[in-house]
Design a protein around this nucleic acid. Structure first.
Lengths: 201, 201
DNA sequence: GGATAAACGGAGGGTTCCTCCGTTTATCCA
DNA sequence: TGGATAAACGGAGGAACCCTCCGTTTATCC
């Protein structure tokens, strides 16, 4: 391993290549968010201001692009947890991060079956990524409890299960809004200083 | 309503049109079964021995075809329940019908997100179809219990939940085989004459 | 500043989608 | 039975998309 956690097995790309790869992912993210898998690869390249050939060199198949998008989003989400925790009061960090998670889930839903099939065909991806999410929830929650801004009997699973439910809720134009409201309610519940403790699981 | 349950609001198509509609659905069913949503509409028309124009006249959008396929399969499945019940011993009818249901579920899985999205966008379809399935299970099971070939403490939900689980099980080349095995086991369990009753729900 | 390997861009061939319209045919009635 | 006619058919054709290939541009190293 070299310094920045980068394995120098592969000799590090040229600067323009790295930059363009980033642009392609940004464009893909934007288009997928608004049209799901209907987004055409040519449109992605166009939106990134690059040629279609460049897209195909970076991502030889549609699957490769979806995979990269997924990994990137996941990494960014987990990184955001630490970032928010460092900059905000713990309960605020948790609240913001949950809203951020909803955006992530929204794109995951946008990918729909594509992603589902990809993950089923390639368990290695799941393995590489699994755990980051629950552990981020646990960290944020523990910090908020330690700081006293969230009730002490809250458990990470309360949050995880809520998110799971939201994720599998029927899609619709106002999915994101509803999801936001539900998470808002959940946060209020977590902040409450109740007379009775929650039933133990 | 006219005699055969056909509403004469719409003036009844020409014979060739009805025949061709049937052919298109058969072709679509076959292709979807083997390639999922990758099946091209032109291939469907070709397989049906018809022109692409004919397909588009019958099904103006891909959605329309998927919807018709879904409705048709569902109706056939429910009808099969009565047919089997009339011709076979009740437990055999149930067993056969469950296997038949798996084929139905397989095509539903093949349609994947397409169907999922369609059903979410058009609740009327769900409404038109809902109930047929559980009630068929209940009828077949009740008959088998009445006839004494299935244990009396069996409940329709035992079957419905098993099928739900099978439906959402990870896809794979041997999905159908595994599903068949599970249903076989379930049937053996239902036929068993146990010493202890099942726990009550 | 020049050499060179890496990266870029887009033309082009193949496929699919969907429309449009000239041709064929089932159905009806004299 | 046979002719009129509205309904149904078939497929050519334009647009969009997928993906490959290769000539051109450019970042990097000395």
């Amino acid at each position: 391993m070299s310094a920045a956690g980068e394995c120098d097995r592969e000799p590090r790309k040229r600067a323009d290549a790295r930059r363009n790869r980033e642009r392609l992912l940004m464009a893909a993210r934007a288009l997928v968010a608004e049209q799901g898998m209907a987004a055409s690869l040519e449109a992605v390249a166009r939106q990134a201001g690059l040629g279609i050939g460049t897209l195909y060199r970076h991502f030889p198949t549609r699957e490769a692009l979806v995979e990269a998008l997924f990994r990137e989003e996941h990494a960014a989400l987990v990184a955001a947890a630490d970032d928010l925790a460092a900059r905000l009061p713990a309960d605020e960090a948790l609240a913001r991060w949950l809203q951020r998670s909803l955006d992530y889930l929204a794109t995951k839903r946008g990918l729909g079956d594509s992603l589902h099939q990809l993950l089923q065909a390639r368990p290695d991806i799941v393995a590489a990524v699994q755990g980051g999410f629950p552990s981020a929830v646990a960290r944020l929650l523990a910090a908020a409890i330690a700081q006293g801004s969230v009730r002490p009997d809250a458990e990470p699973e309360d949050i995880l299960h809520t998110l799971t439910g939201i994720y599998s809720a029927p899609a619709g134009p106002d999915w994101r809004r509803r999801a936001g409201r539900i998470v808002g309610l959940l946060m209020d519940g977590l902040r409450a200083r109740p007379e009775k403790a929650l039933p133990r699981g």
